[in-house]
C-alpha cells in the first residue's frame, strides 16, 4: 500500500508520459480533457486520468476520526496478511463435507427428530393446571418453575447474613435485600469469567482449577435448588434444615476438590501427548 505517500508527492511528481510525448502535441493536449494517452488504436478506450485521486487516496486525505479509522483498518488488514503469511496453517486440497445435500439432510434429520421428541413429550405428559388464584389462601408449597429454584434458594441465605456487633447485633442489610444481592453477585461472577481466564487452553485437564470451579458451581446450583424446596426435602428425606444448609455449601466444595484431584492426576499422563501435538504447533507465549 502507498500509506506513506503524502499529498505533495501526488502533485509534484512528473508524469512519465509527458516526457515521452513528441513536441507537436501541445494543441492536442489542449482539447484533451481525460489526460490519458490516446496512442491506442482500438477505438479510443481511455483509462481514467491518473491524476484523479482514487477512493483510497481520497480516504487518506480525510482528517480526524475517519482518518484514524482508515489508518487502523489498513494496519489491521496488514496485520492479518502478515499473520496469514507467517502461519503454517494448512488448507486441505479437497473440498469439505458438502453443505448440500449431506450437511443439510443431516441437520434436517436432527431437527425433525428433536421436534418430534418435543411433540411426543407434549402428547405424553400434558400439563397440570392448579386451582384458580386465591389471594386469601396461601398454598403450602409456593414454587417457581424448576429453572428458578437456584435463584429462589439464594433468597434463603438468611443465616449467612452477618450481624454486626458494632450495630448491636443489627444486620447491615435486611435479609431480603441480601438474597436479591446474592443473585446479582452470582450472575456477575459468571459474567466476569472470560475476563479472568484467558489463554489457549480448552480442555478441563489443562486447567484443573477452572474446571473444579465449574463443577463446584454446577453442584452448588443443585444444592441451592434443594435448599429452595427444603420443606419438600424434609418431608422426603431424614435430614434437618440445619444439616441441609450445611450440605448446601459443603457438597460443592467436596465435588470441586474431587474434580480438581481427578483432573490433576489425569494431567500428568495427559499433558505429554497434548504438549507434543498442540504446543508444537502453537508455542505458548
Amino acid at each position: 500500500m502507498s500509506g506513506k505517500r503524502t499529498d505533495t508527492d501526488d502533485s509534484t511528481e512528473p508524469r512519465t508520459d509527458d516526457i515521452s510525448e513528441p513536441e507537436g502535441s501541445e494543441a492536442r493536449r489542449a482539447v484533451r480533457t481525460d489526460g490519458g494517452s490516446d496512442t491506442r488504436s482500438d477505438g479510443g478506450i481511455v483509462p481514467q486520468d491518473d491524476q484523479a485521486p482514487t477512493w483510497s487516496e481520497r480516504k487518506q486525505r480525510t482528517q480526524g476520526l475517519s482518518r484514524l479509522t482508515y489508518e487502523y483498518f489498513e494496519r489491521s488488514r496488514r496485520e492479518d496478511e502478515d499473520l496469514r503469511r507467517a502461519s503454517d496453517y494448512v488448507e486441505r486440497d479437497v473440498l469439505a463435507f458438502p453443505t448440500w445435500p449431506h450437511e443439510m439432510i443431516r441437520n434436517l434429520a436432527i431437527t425433525s427428530f428433536f421436534i418430534g421428541a418435543m411433540f411426543f413429550l407434549a402428547a405424553a405428559v400434558p400439563p397440570h393446571l392448579p386451582g384458580p388464584a386465591n389471594a386469601n389462601s396461601t398454598p403450602a408449597v409456593i414454587l417457581p418453575d424448576w429453572y428458578l429454584y437456584w435463584s429462589f434458594g439464594l433468597l434463603k441465605l438468611t443465616p449467612l447474613n452477618p450481624e454486626l456487633a458494632l450495630l448491636g447485633g443489627e444486620k447491615l442489610v435486611s435479609d431480603r435485600v441480601y438474597g436479591v444481592v446474592a443473585n446479582l453477585v452470582v450472575v456477575s461472577i459468571i459474567a466476569m469469567v472470560p475476563f479472568l481466564n484467558k489463554g489457549a487452553a480448552r480442555r478441563p485437564v489443562e486447567e484443573p482449577g477452572w474446571a473444579a470451579l465449574g463443577v463446584g458451581g454446577v453442584v452448588f446450583a443443585f444444592t441451592i435448588a434443594a435448599l429452595a424446596v427444603k420443606n419438600l426435602i424434609a418431608a422426603t428425606f431424614p435430614i434437618g434444615n440445619h444439616e441441609l444448609f450445611d450440605v448446601t455449601f459443603l457438597l460443592p466444595l467436596v465435588a470441586a476438590f474431587l474434580a480438581y484431584a481427578v483432573l490433576k492426576t489425569m494431567r500428568e499422563g495427559y499433558m505429554f501427548e497434548l504438549n507434543r501435538r498442540y504446543f508444537r504447533l502453537r508455542p505458548p507465549k
Binding site: 392448579p130 388464584a133 409456593i142 429453572y147 435463584s151
Partner: peptide
Amino acid sequence: MVFGYTGYLLPWSQLSYWAGQIGVEMALSI
C-alpha cells in the same frame, strides 16, 4: 428465565399468583 416466569403467571392459577407475589417482594427488596 424472565420469559418463563412471565409465562408462568399468565394462567393466573394459584401457583401463578403466589409466584407473582414472590416476584413483587423480590422487586421491592431491591
